[in-house]
Design a binder for these strands. Structure first.
Lengths: 358, 358
DNA sequence: CTGAAAGCGCTTACAG
DNA sequence: CTGAAAGCGCTTACAG
């Protein structure tokens, strides 16, 4: 048996009779069907349904009721053609793994679903040609705006969005000059982490982090130094567990001072650090407190002990980016510039202090 | 300074002159602009651009050239209104974490971008009301089809998609009866894993896996037993690293037989198992081979040693789901039923054999 | 209070 | 070979 889902299957059985009486018309239910069923013109039907124009309340209600009964839903394409609003936006990302994009997407969707806006997700990796294709497809479909996001604050997407005829908002990726950009406040996030270590009485702090050529790495390191002391050590490396291991090996190999508080540049490094400490018989958090960055659940919740870490609040970032692109699409004014959104410290058990009720 | 991105900014400076000469019209470039610039009617312009109708090749080329010069792009909303095709599909998922959805999405997008199709991503969690809102928004926007996906093969999404007037394809989630469903062939995947262990000479196998109420857990366990032997032990538990630890503790605590090959139900369990073995001084893969399931890079590539595991080829699954929904949207016939797509064994170092060139 | 007409941007018979 | 007309489904002045 094969099924063919062409035009034919568009008609559900319950609709069939109605449509047959209204001319046997095939296809979706339109405003003509509503008007016919109510015995009025389509103009009046439109006004009744949209609460525009003047008309008796009872007529309005009756039309709405009939529309609901026959399952009428306005065609957004037709509406969009008139109103120049498609209630659709595009999310462009080069973060194929989705580590950062998913929370941002969730926030955007969360903020915009109430406004009837749907989101095209376009993953472009690092391919400029692919990016161009996706951007053009979105523009052809008359998106009301585009949000650009990525995996790195200090890198641009491989496509120029600065001269499009729709508003563009940047979230967690570097924006064009004069644009609206949302990003996490990494300095503030780092301060939260280091101040937490300090509050727990840690004095011999170390920062084990990623590659120095990341802007956010430098920003977090600077903030760390400002709180912990300018002379406190920073170990730059890569974003991996194994670097966390190696850093611990380095710190405990020489005859130097042993840290009692380690602020890690991300959760993966922190996991490596914690594992390495355990393997050396060093207790976390009794002997050393470890704090991470990212609050990547899959990593942070699985470390032993679970990781205290900094959450960049990417969902909130997405929410704000969504509302902003909507505002621009509606012609409202928005101040350009970079908005830094505060991070939040998520206290688990890797630093201690989790039972202090602080 | 504030910027207002209303209608006004739609006109780029370079377009301004042109549009002023064609009537000072504001807004996007339409086929009227092309026709005016070429000194022909819009009907002819349309036919020239779409390679329809009959006309001199040189006219056709000239129109196309002019269209390209003035940056004309057809309005997909207007086209969709006529053609009943929006070149848009919806992807509905309850997998908020994106573990399974992202690769599926990547495959869909990959397959459909060449056909000019864009994808609405709708994350609905487990909320039926939210799901309903998203489905209605997609239908209003005249999606050509919907792909439903999720995080579990044996669970339905919290919304009924069986009587929509657009085609629906299910991918990695349970479909309605009589629908087209794509899923991974978990039995075959499990066989790959266990046969690999057998090929490496492992005889005392154990299967450490997730909750027995998962269909895929039972299916993998059955396949394991068929290859390893019906009497071989299966330890059901949860999908976590800590369960992997606990399972090792259990296996090595009694006086029973010590396994030399452990097939894990997912990569997180495998990671727990490997960590626990290392902590006991048992060498992987020399003493015990460990194989996982999922090929979740972030986990599989970070275990020590890196994990040999089964990849469900979710991207390919997405690709096929995408092409299928497209076929249905075009009215082509598709055989309903469940299609199982083969898994692939990814050989890293946790089993040995990685240098055998097998 | 209600409806005919125009029009959003496009495509497609149809008549020249 | 080319263009006027109709129409996709809707909204919005405008005239009654």
């Amino acid at each position: 048996m094969t099924i063919s889902l062409g035009k034919a299957f568009l008609i559900a059985s319950s609709m069939e009779e109605l449509l047959d009486t209204t001319g046997g018309k095939r296809g979706r239910i339109t405003i003509h069907d509503v008007a016919a069923a109510a015995g009025i013109s389509i103009s009046t039907a439109s006004k009744a349904l949209n609460d525009t124009g003047r008309m008796g309340l009872e007529t309005r209600e009756r039309v709405k009721r009939i529309a609901a009964e026959i399952g009428y839903r306005p065609n957004a394409l037709a509406r969009g053609l008139l109103s120049k609003r498609s209630f659709t936006i595009g999310l462009l990302t080069n973060d194929t793994y989705g580590r950062f994009t998913l929370p941002v997407m969730a926030g955007i969707s969360d903020a915009l679903v109430d406004h009837g806006v749907s989101v095209f997700l376009c993953a472009i990796e690092e391919d400029p040609a692919l990016a161009q294709i996706h951007v053009e497809a979105m523009l052809d479909k008359q998106v009301d705006g585009i949000i650009a996001t990525g995996k790195r604050l200090d890198r641009r997407l491989p496509v120029d969005l600065s001269n499009l005829n729709v508003p563009v908002v940047y979230a967690f990726t570097e924006g064009a000059p004069g644009s609206v950009t949302f990003r996490s406040d990494d300095a503030q996030g780092a301060r939260l982490a280091v101040e937490w270590l300090a509050k727990l009485g840690r004095k011999r702090m170390v920062h084990v982090t990623g590659p120095e050529n990341f802007f956010s790495v430098r920003e977090r390191a600077d903030a760390y130094r400002r709180v912990a002391g300018e002379e406190r050590p920073v170990l730059f490396g890569v974003w991996s567990e194994s670097w966390g291991h190696e850093a611990v090996a380095r710190l405990w190999s020489g005859s130097g001072e042993r840290p009692d508080g380690i602020f890690c540049g991300n959760d993966q490094i922190a996991r490596g650090v914690i594992d390495a400490l355990r393997e050396r018989g060093i207790r976390v958090p009794q002997d050393v407190s470890v704090v991470g960055f990212d609050n990547w659940e899959i990593v942070a919740a699985q470390t032993r002990p679970p990781l205290t870490t900094v959450d960049m609040e990417l969902k909130e970032l997405g929410r704000q980016a969504g509302l902003t692109v909507l505002a621009l699409a509606e012609g409202r004014s928005v101040e350009p510039g970079i908005r830094k959104l505060p991070c939040r410290l998520v206290v688990r058990q890797s630093c201690g202090g989790d039972t202090l009720g602080i």
